[in-house]
Simulated scan of single mutants.
Amino acid sequence: MAKIIALMNQKGGVGKTTTTINLAACLAVAEKKTLVIDLDPQGNGSVSLGLDSSQHTNSNVYHAMIGRTDIREAIYETELPNLHICPSDNNLSGAEIELVSEFARESKLKTAFMPIMDSYDYILIDCPPSLGLLTVNALNAADSFIVPMQTEYLAMEGLAQLINTVKLIKANLNPALEMDGIVLTMFDGRASLHKQVSEEIRRHFGDKVFQAVIPRNVKLAECPSFGKPIILYDIESKGSEAYLALAKELIIKDRAQSVETQNGLPEVPSVDNVDNTLQGNIQ
Rank of each mutant, 00 (worst) to 15 (best):
L246M: 09
S270K: 14
L124T: 03
E73Y: 07
K238R: 12
I116N: 03
Q161G: 10
E222I: 04
P229I: 03
K32H: 06
P87I: 00
M114R: 08
A141Y: 03
D38K: 01
N44H: 12
V100G: 09
M65V: 03
I85N: 01
T57K: 13
I75Y: 03
S46T: 11
E199M: 09
L173Q: 07
M1H: 12
L250N: 02
E102A: 14
M179A: 13
A242M: 05
D254L: 14
R202D: 06
Q10V: 14
M186H: 11
K32R: 10
V36Q: 01
N82G: 08
A142V: 09
L154D: 07
K219V: 08
I71E: 00
N9G: 01
E102P: 00
K208I: 05
G264N: 04
P229G: 01
A160T: 14
E96Q: 14
M8D: 06
C127A: 12
L7F: 15
E77W: 06
N276F: 09
Q283F: 13
M179V: 14
E236V: 12
V197N: 04
V29I: 11
N217M: 10
L133C: 07
K238Y: 10
G13K: 11
S258Q: 07
P128E: 13
M114N: 08
V209Y: 08
E157Y: 09
H56G: 04
Q150E: 15
A245Q: 07
G13M: 13
V209C: 11
M8G: 12
E267V: 15
N140F: 05
Q161V: 10
L265S: 09
D121Q: 11
A2Q: 03
A64W: 00
Q196G: 06
A24M: 06
E267F: 13
I146V: 15
E178H: 08
R105V: 09
A142Q: 05
K167A: 09
T69P: 03
Q150H: 08
A155E: 00
P81M: 11
S258L: 13
F113L: 15
S93H: 06
D38N: 14
F187D: 02
S93G: 15
T78W: 04
S270N: 12
T20Y: 04
F103I: 12
Q283M: 12
I97D: 08
A24V: 06
H63V: 03
M65L: 13
N22W: 05
T135H: 05
L133D: 00
R68Y: 08
G12I: 15
E200L: 10
T111C: 07
C127Q: 07
D38C: 10
L220K: 02
K32L: 04
Y233N: 00
S240R: 00
I231W: 04
S258H: 14
I169F: 02
N263Y: 12
V14G: 05
F103S: 08
V147N: 01
A30D: 03
D118K: 13
H63R: 02
N276G: 09
